[in-house]
Simulated assay, not measured.
Amino acid sequence: MTVPTSTRAAVLTEHGKPLHLTEIPLPAEVEPGAALVHVSCATLCGTDVEIWSGKMSFPGMLPMVLGHEMVGEVVAVGADTRDALGRDIEVGARIGWSESTCGECYGCVVLREPVACSRRGYGFLQRSDVHPFATAGLCEYAYVVPRAAKLLLPDEIPDNWAAMAGCAAKTVLRAFSYVGGLTGKRVVVQGSGALGVFATAVAHLSGAAKVITVGSPASRLTLAGEFGADATVDIAEGSERIVERVTELTGGRGADLVMDFAGAPSVGREAVAMAAQRGHVVIVGSTGPNSEPLPLGAVMGKELTVHGSLNGDISDYHKAIEFFSAFADRMPWNDLFGTPVGLSAASERIEAMHRLDEVKAVVDPRLP
């Protein structure tokens, strides 16, 4: 095929406004280590919704293309382009990809933590009017930069699962890595979006004695039940009642593990209140600057262990793919996803997620 020099893309030009469907350039050549991909699936994440709404914003970020969970077929490839496991990437291969890292900074070299890279680059934070233009999911074609974390994908993993593995699933699995085995433990999941429901499933499949999902609306709590929640608590009951209900559901002892995938201002205080003596609290969803103070006296008095967990790295990405392979038949994974739509309907699906009407929107740029 002829390698394209431009691509259709749904571009965010103003927060809270419909995406602008337009044509943007592609790089004139594919660098060594890079690839040009025909996107077949992009699943939207809560971060996309926060950027679209303006909750997550910084000067000079627009215009940009959203989407950081995506899969596609390679149509052009630079010299020596390999995936994270050293496998050659060739034209026709199906790959997923995620953020890039520099491999040179303190985080990369000394800490050996890709998430701590000082020059960590996300495709969805690339301005669409600056080279290399189209690096995110809501494009017909996307340019995958040389140091992006790439993975060749197994045939048995559907596009939507593989796309979700690129952020939501890997983020959840990294969060669980801090707390060891769950067998016989009581787990509270704060949040009933895609991350919270997936975390509910992971806790259930990992042998937790009881999994309690806290969130809203009622439809998402029903979904959490399908993914292994033994009980659910609606946040509409109010902060004090949430803690009371969890205490009741755990026999008065509290939860051995509380995981924040919600990010509401009160979740830290509630998490500490719900945690059992010597319990663990993992903070994942609190990305915004506004939150209530954490009750440090209770952290001390209960001898709690509090972990922060930021996104995930290529190791977590690979584990997420393997997780879906291992548990393909154990959960109704497709119930997490909406009906695929084309780029022209991407704005509608972002707004639906913003209204909590859809858990995880799916965009197939090949559709009209």
Rank of each mutant, 00 (worst) to 15 (best):
I350F: 10
F198H: 00
R253W: 12
A276F: 03
E303Q: 10
A162D: 00
S53E: 13
P158R: 03
V281D: 11
G86K: 08
E23N: 13
D316N: 08
A165H: 02
V30P: 08
A326R: 07
S177P: 08
R127K: 04
G72A: 11
S286F: 04
G78Q: 12
A203N: 04
D88I: 15
G137M: 09
S216R: 06
R278H: 10
E270A: 06
T250E: 04
W52N: 10
V188N: 05
F198K: 00
G196T: 05
R94A: 07
E104H: 12
T81C: 15
M70S: 13
A35R: 02
A231K: 02
G207F: 02
P158C: 05
E23G: 14
S325E: 12
M64V: 11
A116G: 10
P293N: 07
T47Q: 03
T287Q: 12
M64S: 09
M331V: 06
S286G: 11
T213P: 03
L336M: 07
T250H: 02
A194D: 04
T232A: 01
A168P: 10
T135L: 14
I242L: 10
C41H: 03
A149W: 00
A361L: 07
A201V: 05
D256H: 09
A168T: 12
G92N: 08
V77D: 09
E140V: 12
P293K: 01
T232G: 05
A28N: 14
A169V: 01
E348D: 15
I314V: 15
V299F: 05
